[in-house]
């Protein structure tokens, strides 16, 4: 059974008179352990598609099954739970909380977990994740004290801290220089291995 099964998925935005068909009938299966890249020119609907896969947005048509469960018609709260436990999302712009330490940023998803995670356990898991992305010596740094690549690694640690079924990254190297981009992509490959 594929982790992600998408059938005839479409997303249409209607801004006033103009209808923008961002995603038009995508069919896709992704198995566990696959490493998939979605490529296309700017404005081709990559981000919209990623947002739907990440349960941040809902399709206007078609179905999306995540681990065999149709998630396209769930309530807001159910979607929040899925985002929390099944999906790790890495954004182009890092999206770390300002004036909040790397450790606390990584702990954030654990705060919203269903059966609440105790403080000590939250800390232990966040520290383990930061160690896994090679930032064990930067846990108390604020985002503005970290380089772009380090910030993105904090974001990756945050995406992985709840042990999700899928890790989605929407142009994760878009804000990074080429050397750092390679480091981040290496990290993804390493995590996938």
């Amino acid at each position: 059974m594929p982790v992600i099964a998408v059938r005839d998925l479409a997303k249409t935005y209607s801004t006033g008179a103009v209808e923008v068909r961002a995603v038009r009938g995508v069919n896709l299966d992704i198995e566990a352990g696959e490493f998939v890249a979605v490529v296309g020119p700017s404005g081709s609907g990559k981000s919209t598609f990623m947002h739907i896969l990440g349960c941040l947005d809902r399709p206007t048509r078609g179905s999306y099954e995540l681990e065999g469960r149709d998630v396209s018609r769930l309530t807001r709260d159910q979607l929040a739970d899925i985002r929390n436990t099944k999906i790790g999302f890495v954004f182009q712009g890092f999206n770390l909380l300002a004036r909040t330490s790397a450790l606390e940023n990584v702990e954030l998803p654990l705060l919203y977990r269903g059966p609440s995670v105790r403080g000590a356990e939250r800390r232990r898991r966040a520290l383990a994740m930061l160690d896994a992305v090679g930032l064990a010596d930067r846990v108390d740094h604020m985002p503005n004290q970290l380089s772009g690549g380090q910030q993105q690694r904090v974001a990756i640690a945050r995406a992985l801290v709840n042990d999700p079924a899928i890790l989605l990254a929407d142009e994760p190297t878009g804000n990074l220089d080429s050397t750092t981009s390679r480091e981040v992509l290496d990290l993804f490959r390493q995590l996938n291995a």
Binding site: D77, Y112, R158
Partner: peptide
């Protein structure tokens, strides 16, 4: 943006 991020990470409306 902070609210959006918290929601993306699994915060529900009531949180």
């Amino acid at each position: 943006r902070e609210i959006g991020l918290r929601m993306a990470l699994g915060a529900k409306g009531r949180h």
